[in-house]
Structures are given as structure tokens and as C-alpha cells.
């Protein structure tokens, strides 16, 4: 198990290094001069030259990368175009997106798993068709449309929930939940559809397996057969899907964050790209890459917990 983890962590570090190189070079390949973006309406050549010098943009790209990596390894990600520390900006934005993604994951998974199990157990019956229909709608409805519709209904017309913004959990947990409810539902809708479809397929496969027939032959109750045997095996597939969807959730959060004015990671990334804010983009991508790597690593480890065969095959022979 220790070797397995070490190998995974080593691979993760290589991935992080490669991601930082690709992004560092990639962002500089985007047409348009960062100094022009930083200069705003001030475009005199002297000022642009000063800006290039101030941000080290007039150095060779290898020198720029080396300097950035050295400082990053010492915990300094530089300053963004607001002259605020990048690390602080990211640390402030990250919990918002993580909370949004976490809540969406919870809502989406709960709805998806329950609907998937019901659809599989009641295959061919009205509840199956209903679940499939809801899943289809969940996949088809664009986030921005659903978000705006909910804002008009619950914020503008009924005044039940705020139209957007964010209140930190530590400041006011109730207000935090009120602010996050609509965005989490909007973002979770798509996920619930995906999870429901996966859950239904996995459950159908499990319910048709020999060990389920054996369990039923032993006289176990249907609740035990479905809940303890079929569901547990089916969750392995669904856990993978949910793990992979977390990345999609964070990407999808850009739109949800924009509609609900949450200053999260997604909005920060888009803004940084538009502003050619190199320091912020590099910081954001580094953290995002680290996030992906950690999630994948966690999923791998969860596999081994849920399915002992993986753990055994992972041992050196």
C-alpha cells in the first residue's frame, strides 16, 4: 500500500511540473501583449516598457519560468493586477468554489443515486420513465438559463433567497446556506442526471448477477439484497463517475459563479485570462492541477477501500 501511494504521489508531482510548464508557455502564446492589458488606457511606449520591466516580461521565457518556479516553491506566487498577493486571492476564492462544488456534489449524488436505484429496481415502470425523463431534462437544460429562471422566481418575485453573492460559513452559516442553495441546485442538476444514468446501469448489472440470485435464494429481504449487496457493488462505478465529475463541476462552476456573482475559482480564472494576468493564471492553474491530482489520487485510494481485489493486486508479487 505504501509503495502504491508513493508511486502515485511521484506521478502527481511530475504532472504538476508539466502542467506548470504548459500553462506558462501557453498563456504567453495567447495573442495580445500583457503590458497593454496592464496599461489600460495608458499606452505610451515608455510606460509599457516600464510595465514589462516591472513584471519581468522583458526577460527570456526560461528566465521568467525559473524565477516564478523558485518563488512558488518558497510560497510566493507574486501579485495580481490588483496588486494583491496571488496566494491570498486564490485562498479566498477557493473555499467558495469548493463549497459550491461540494454542495452540488452532495445534492447531485443524492438525487442521482436515489433516482438511479429506483429506476433500476422498478425497471420498465412509470417511476423508471419518470427518472429517465428528469435525467434527460437535467442534462439538457443549460445552467445559465436554469439559474436565471430561479433568480427571477425566488429572488426577484418571491424574495425568498438572495439573487447572488456569498457569505462565508464562519460569518453566518444560515446566510451562507441561503446564498449557496440556488447555485448548488443549478450546478447539481447536471450531475444528478449523469449519476442517475450510471447508477441505473450499474444497479441493473448488479441485480442480474449470480451473487444477487444466491442472496435472494438464501431468503434475504429485498431491502438487504438491494441496499447491502447490489448497491455497494454498483457504488464502485458511480464513485469513479462522481470523482471524474468533480473536475467537470469545478469547470461548470464558472457559469454558475458568474450568474450568482460568487467570486470563486472559475470566475477568477476567466477574469485572469481576460486581463492577461499572468501571475494569477499561473497560480490558479497550479492549484487547479493540484486539485485534479489530489482528487484522482483519492479516487484511486477509495477504489482500494471499496474493492479489496484492487488492493490485493496492487501489492508487489
Amino acid at each position: 500500500m505504501g509503495g502504491f501511494i508513493l508511486r502515485r504521489v511521484g506521478a502527481a508531482l511530475v504532472v504538476l511540473f508539466l502542467a506548470s510548464v504548459v500553462v506558462f508557455a501557453g498563456i504567453r502564446a495567447i495573442p495580445g501583449d500583457a503590458a497593454l492589458a496592464l496599461g489600460g488606457e495608458e499606452r505610451s511606449p515608455e510606460v509599457l516598457a516600464q510595465l514589462r520591466h516591472k513584471y519581468g516580461l522583458d526577460d527570456p521565457i526560461v528566465v521568467q519560468y525559473g524565477r516564478w518556479l523558485w518563488l512558488a516553491l518558497h510560497g510566493d506566487l507574486g501579485s495580481d493586477s490588483r496588486e494583491l498577493p496571488v496566494a491570498h486571492t486564490i485562498v479566498s476564492a477557493l473555499p467558495r468554489t469548493l463549497e459550491l462544488a461540494g454542495l452540488s456534489l452532495l445534492i447531485g449524488s443524492l438525487i442521482g443515486i436515489v433516482a438511479g436505484v429506483v429506476a433500476a429496481v422498478r425497471r420498465g415502470k412509470p417511476s423508471d420513465y419518470l427518472s429517465n425523463g428528469i435525467a434527460l431534462i437535467g442534462l439538457s437544460v443549460p445552467h445559465f438559463w436554469l439559474g436565471l429562471l430561479m433568480i427571477i422566481a425566488f429572488a426577484v418575485k418571491l424574495h425568498w433567497l438572495p439573487s447572488g453573492g456569498y457569505v462565508p460559513l464562519r460569518v453566518d452559516p444560515v446566510e451562507n446556506l441561503r446564498h449557496m442553495l440556488m447555485p448548488a441546485i443549478v450546478l447539481g442538476t447536471g450531475l444528478s442526471a449523469v449519476v442517475m444514468r450510471q447508477m441505473r446501469s450499474a444497479m441493473l448489472e448488479s441485480l442480474g448477477a449470480d451473487y444477487i440470485r444466491t442472496a435472494r435464494a438464501k431468503g434475504l429481504s429485498e431491502w438487504t439484497v438491494v441496499g447491502r449487496h447490489a448497491l455497494r457493488n454498483s457504488l464502485i462505478t458511480v464513485t469513479t463517475v462522481i470523482g471524474l465529475q468533480l473536475g467537470a463541476l469545478i469547470s461548470g462552476a464558472v457559469i454558475t459563479e458568474t450568474i450568482f456573482q460568487i467570486a470563486g475559482f472559475g470566475r477568477l480564472t476567466i477574469d485572469a485570462v481576460n486581463q492577461r494576468d499572468y501571475a494569477l493564471i499561473q497560480g490558479v492553474v497550479l492549484v487547479a492541477a493540484a486539485g485534479y491530482v489530489i482528487v484522482n489520487l483519492t479516487v484511486d485510494l477509495l477504489y482500494s477501500v471499496l474493492n479489496p481485489r484492487i488492493r490485493i493486486s496492487g501489492r508487489p508479487g
Partner: peptide
Amino acid sequence: AAAAALRAHD
């Protein structure tokens, strides 16, 4: 979103 926030008096 800005218009909705104003109409919702947020």
C-alpha cells in the same frame, strides 16, 4: 445578474 440583484433589492 446586476439587474436581477437591483430588482431583488440585494
